Computed example of a mutant assay.
Amino acid sequence: MNSDLRASALVAGMSLLGMAIAAGFSYGYVHGNLVIPGDAGATYENIASSAPLFAAALFGWLVVLMLDVVVAWAFYVFLKPIRPRLALLGAWLRLAYAAILGVAIACLFVSSLLASGAVDTSSFPPEQLHALTNLFLEAFDSIWSMGLIVFGAHLWVTGWVSSRSNRIPKLWSILLLIAAVGYAVIHIGNAFLPSSDRIVAALETVFMVPMVAGELGFGLWLLFKGGKLSSAPAQAPPTGGPVA
């Protein structure tokens, strides 16, 4: 049992670190530098002149998507001994998020095809082509934002299950729960309150640290400590009520 837990912890930890690197490159570096908010023409020219870089970013997103599936499995195996049904729910929520992310990535792929000249766009006037490319980029942001609401639900379940174990430090459980709230309120605001930019920006400032430190810190703990032999019981004693 401990060997399975240690293996799943290692897989989860390495996958989370790999996702952080891939997402940092694809979204933080490439998307952040090539996509100019409010300027469809400049964005189009940036992508068209940096087609190999944008293609590399797409590959990075595919890596993130595949690692999300791996993490869903690894979290389930690691958390199953604590609360099996909730661990399964957490895994399904992460898989649902991964499916939504896949749809969003497809929008990026269409933008890449339009800007790189891989498809015949001669029938589109330049301004229309720029607007169409930008439309798919905005669709990526909107769809991914909706998916991050589901991701927040996944983090909430993961944090709650983690909090029921005496082998997992409470710090990570608390950070995961705070990060879950952050993802939910920020992206619900993005999706349903389009005029609340200032409020969303303020929420991002408040929740940024736990959102980054929650899952990444938990991933580092899993990588170096998770599943190792411990004299502590696997889960906290029940305090009453049904066991999930």
Rank of each mutant, 00 (worst) to 15 (best):
V209Y: 15
D120K: 03
P210K: 02
A115R: 10
D68K: 00
R83H: 10
A153P: 13
A99K: 09
T133W: 14
V103L: 13
H31I: 07
A51D: 15
L223W: 14
V243C: 07
A74F: 08
A7N: 14
K225L: 06
L34Y: 11
G214E: 00
D4K: 12
V77E: 09
E127N: 15
H31G: 09
C107V: 07
D4P: 11
F136A: 07
A91W: 08
G182F: 02
V150S: 07
P242T: 14
H154I: 04
V103R: 09
D141P: 13
I100P: 02
N46K: 09
V71R: 05
P52Y: 13
K228N: 02
V69A: 12
G13R: 05
G18S: 06
A9P: 06
L177I: 15
F218N: 03
A96Y: 01
V119H: 15
R164I: 01
C107R: 07
V11C: 08
R6Y: 11
Y97P: 08
L86I: 05
A74G: 00
V150D: 03
N190W: 06
C107L: 06
A23H: 00
A48K: 04
V64Q: 12
L114R: 11
G152C: 06
I178R: 07
A202D: 06
A91I: 11
R198T: 13
S116G: 10
M146S: 11
L113Q: 15
R198M: 13
A139Y: 09
S15M: 06
K225E: 06
F78E: 08
A118K: 14
L177H: 13
V185T: 12
L193H: 15
A87N: 08
L5S: 09
V30R: 05
V11L: 09
G18W: 05
S112G: 13
A74Y: 06
D68Q: 02
L93R: 07
G117M: 00
S231M: 13
A201M: 01
F75T: 01
N134T: 13
S142G: 01
I82N: 11
V70P: 10
M66F: 06
H154V: 04
I82C: 12
A139E: 08
A184R: 04
G60D: 12
A57W: 10
A42G: 12
A57F: 11
G24R: 01
A201T: 02
M14F: 15
A202Q: 01
W172I: 02
F25N: 05
S26H: 00
A56P: 07
R94V: 03
Y97G: 05
Y183M: 07
A42K: 14
G18K: 02
A55P: 05
N166G: 11
G41F: 10
R198L: 12
L135F: 09
P169V: 08
M19D: 05
S111W: 12
A106W: 15
G117R: 05
S122W: 14
A104R: 03
F140N: 08
Y183Q: 03
I105Q: 04
F124Y: 00
A236F: 12
W160D: 04
Y44E: 04
A7D: 15
L137I: 02
G241L: 14
L16F: 11
A96V: 00
G147D: 10
K225Q: 06
S111R: 14
G90W: 07
G38V: 09
S163Y: 12
H154D: 06
